[in-house]
Design a binder for these strands. Sequence first.
DNA 1: ATATTGAGAAACCAAATGGTTGCACGTATA
DNA 2: TATACGTGCAACCATTTGGTTTCTCAATAT
Lengths: 123, 123
Amino acid sequence: MVARIFATERFPNSVFEMRRDVFQAIADPTRRAIILLVATQAMTPNALAEHFDSSRQAISKHLRILTECELVKQEQSGRKIHYHFNAKKMKEVADFIEPFRQMWDTRFNQLDNLLSTIKTTKK
Amino acid sequence: MVARIFATERFPNSVFEMRRDVFQAIADPTRRAIILLVATQAMTPNALAEHFDSSRQAISKHLRILTECELVKQEQSGRKIHYHFNAKKMKEVADFIEPFRQMWDTRFNQLDNLLSTIKTTKK
DNA sequence: ATATTGAGAAACCAAATGGTTGCACGTATA
DNA sequence: TATACGTGCAACCATTTGGTTTCTCAATAT
């Protein structure tokens, strides 16, 4: 549905490369696990698949999605493809979350406590 | 499928309240918009629905998902229900992202530049 | 030169998703 | 008391998702 925006009747799919959303990409637990693995060390699809129950092709599909939203980049060497993590793209998620940080951050809670203590003392 | 873990044959759905995943919840752009609205000010479903094209019931379903994963909390007053944001749950996402922060943070890139400058100078 | 290997593409499938409309029900209001 | 309002739920539907199996193809190994 997000992809629909980029597709037209003449180019239903292939040309306007379906751009994925980072949020949609990290929604899947397998993909998050892949990200964690790849962030530590660039890996091939085969190597990655060994860490999961599902087939290599299934992992390949996850990698496609991660590549489309640029959370991961390919580096070809011979017939092998090493996937490595692209941290910059993760910043998009961080940017969304950042405004909420102060709402849960303990430092702010401590500030609240401090303020109420002052209040009480003054009273 | 994540929910499947919590469901059994005897209790296919209702009893084992389908616990949603925060990541899955923020995957949808409408839900992210709802979060942003609700974070500023607690709102009722009707009030929220005015900000979107889709029906009130559709928004209600989104609110159900957000409630199930505790990103949002209900506060009933008469026949109205005010939904307000629960920042703590968002921390789960922040915790996932945090390890990657240093990889995109410009301060670290600057450090990299500095280090390579030193290297060059020494040479 | 031939066999094997790494990897993506295609076709298919069951389940999940996001939307709709219609309905039920408790709470406010005339 | 009767009516309008605010909300959630159920049933339905089209599309998307995540998985599988089979196939192709280029790169390596024998």
